[in-house]
Amino acid sequence: MASNPKSLGNRVGSLQCDNTTLHLLKANDFVANAIRERLKNVCVINVCSSPGSGKTTLMQETGKRLGKDLKISVLVGDPETDRDAVRMKEVGLNALQIVTGGMCHIEAQMILQALDHIDLEDTDLLFIENVGNLLCPSAFDLGEDYRVTLLATTEGDDKPKKYPRMFLTSELMLVSKADLLPYVPFTVENVTKDAREVNPNIEVLTISTTNGEGIDQWCEWLKERVKAKKANEAE
């Protein structure tokens, strides 16, 4: 019966003001850490971008290239449909759609629930394709090891400063659709400078799934991270 004796002691007519620090959205961090505990052997990558920057296409391409060497699973967030998961399954990826019901981001709780419905036995690499949005997903830790943000050359090279938290919390920025560079007012130099002013540690890689540029390096980057995760766990 530990209720609130404090208020009983108040003088009549006095206002009681409580200065506190009650953190919000903490439940998400708690669940994210539970996911991290559970996926100790799996390298988890949270893939973010605006809608249409090429996340699904990149997952498909990655599946084709690395599918023989690594077991890759994908959780795909989509506000309404399961189209992306279907596209991934077509190339043999173990994919599950998380329909967010119109929500603009994935929360850790959705991932935790999805883990019970996808076979992660022997999975080396788990991609989470986040909902297309550079704003809201940045605030939600999903228990990932790395956050990778795609920025297509068609989106303009001023985005890192407009969405600083996303780039601040990403380990790698993939400049996608590099094949379109000759046709758009976008330079990799400008976007890299902008991104590094927000996050000096961010790695930048230029890729195109259309002409294959940078995809080998991307695959190498992934293989190293998977290896590092397993080595870390074996210790």
């Binding site: 108040n10 007519g13 206002l15 009681q16 003001c17 540690n201």
Partner: peptide, 22 residues
């Protein structure tokens, strides 16, 4: 450059004021 954020990420209830007690 620095990504050592001292302030700016936070989101919390900082003050709660109660109605006059009877």
């Amino acid at each position: 450059p620095s990504t050592d954020i001292v302030q700016g990420n936070e989101l919390y209830i900082s003050k709660v004021i109660f109605k006059q007690s009877l």
